[in-house]
């Protein structure tokens, strides 16, 4: 029962534990704050985290380093190639109009989608925040598009905006338009339709973030503003928005990164080519087209574009952060 005695000293306090602990193990570990740490051999924790650290290391961290390495080679998808070509892929990229078109499309996507996804879910959260009867039903219903699979809802939208679909029919009947709007065949309209789909599907997701943020906005600020004669809109601008500013920043970064990741929306709405002649391809779409075709794929060049996508993502996160801290001043 030696262990019981040992545990007793532990419970008495850490000072006692440090005295009792053999000096050899002390040098091996950080200072324990809980007694249990003293009973573990040094390798037990590693046993517990081994599967996670292996999979996350091999498929979460290594691929990034590997992508940078690959971008300097002429590797092919199914082995083959792999010789060092220096900056060839990058110089090819800079001169590639299809690459710049994909950059433009992805940036346009973010520029249009992010403001909508920052503001609309906040208004939605404001709408469902107060617990009126049946609010649980509304919250659940507003979240439904988030969980539905993207391929399936993109097919729904494809039907909605098709030439003889309900949206074009309704607009024609009201008399706003004479001929159907080519939502899916015009490149710009296709991108805007895909953005609308992304925003529609993201509303409920970001609403959740704002719902918990709204809980921390002091209630008396609304009362004070109301006493000063501020209406709903001015309360929203002067109380709600400053109160959830950090969440807006978070949502901005998340939706920005999400916009740069878009593939499925374009693939389903615009077809396998990515719009007419690939004109609506986003960066991930272009990466897939360039790199991952088993026969004609060029992994090296695809890796270079992947690095560009990563730089763009980090740049966007840094820019939003700068923007967020500037507003603070």
């Amino acid at each position: 029962m030696a262990t019981d005695v040992y545990a007793g000293t532990l419970a008495a306090g850490e000072q006692a534990a440090r005295v009792t602990r053999p000096s050899r193990t002390r040098s091996r570990r950080p200072r324990p704050t809980s007694g249990a740490a003293l009973y573990r051999p040094w390798w037990t924790p590693w046993l517990w985290v081994a599967p996670a650290i292996i999979v996350i290391g091999v498929f979460g961290v290594f691929p990034f380093l590997n992508t940078i390495l690959l971008s300097f080679t002429d590797a092919r998808p199914l082995g083959g190639g792999g010789d060092w070509v220096g900056l060839d892929n990058y110089s090819r990229m800079v001169a590639d109009p299809a690459f710049w078109l994909a950059v433009r499309n992805s940036v346009l996507y973010a520029v249009v989608a992010v403001p909508l996804l920052v503001v609309l879910p906040l208004m939605l959260a404001q709408l469902v925040y107060k617990k009126v009867p049946a609010i649980g039903f509304f919250r659940t219903a507003f979240y439904a598009p988030v969980v539905a699979s993207m391929v399936a809802v993109a097919l729904v939208w494809q039907n909605l905006v098709s030439e003889n679909g309900p949206i074009n029919t309704a607009l024609t009947q009201v008399g706003i338009i004479d001929s159907p709007i080519p939502f899916l065949s015009d490149t710009t309209l296709l991108l805007l339709t895909a953005i609308a789909l992304t925003v529609w599907k993201g509303l409920g997701w970001y609403m959740i973030f704002y719902l918990s943020a709204l809980a921390s906005v002091p209630k008396d600020l609304y009362e004070a503003a109301s006493l000063d004669g501020a209406g709903t809109f001015r309360q929203f601008v002067h109380v709600t928005v400053p109160g959830v500013r950090l969440t807006m920043l978070l949502v901005g970064i998340m939706s920005g990164i999400g916009s740069l990741r878009v593939f499925t929306e374009i693939y389903i709405l615009g077809g396998a080519t990515g719009g007419v002649g690939g004109q609506a391809r986003t960066l991930p779409f272009y990466i897939r087209d360039v790199a991952l075709d088993p026969i004609s794929g060029n992994v090296g060049y695809g890796a270079a574009i992947s690095v560009a996508l990563f730089v763009l993502t980090i740049g966007l996160a840094v820019a939003s952060h700068k923007l967020g801290s500037k507003e603070e001043d």
């Binding site: 091996r28 570990r29 950080p30 200072r31 324990p32 704050t33 809980s34 740490a37 003293l38 573990r40 040094w42 037990t44 924790p45 590693w46 985290v49 650290i53 996350i56 290391g57 979460g60 961290v61 290594f62 691929p63 990034f64 590997n66 992508t67 690959l70 990164i257 740069l260 990741r261 593939f263 960066l283 991930p284 990466i287 897939r288 790199a291 991952l292 992994v299 695809g302 890796a303 992947s306 690095v307 996508l309 990563f310 993502t313 980090i314």
Partner: peptide
């Protein structure tokens, strides 16, 4: 109170920095 905990934590954080689409080629 175990060695390597901090390293493991940072591996997790770093792995979340890379969007899937930027590492899918690798």
């Amino acid at each position: 109170g175990w060695r390597g905990r901090g390293v493991f934590y940072w591996v997790l954080i770093i792995s979340m920095m890379f969007p899937f689409e930027s590492i899918m080629v690798s």
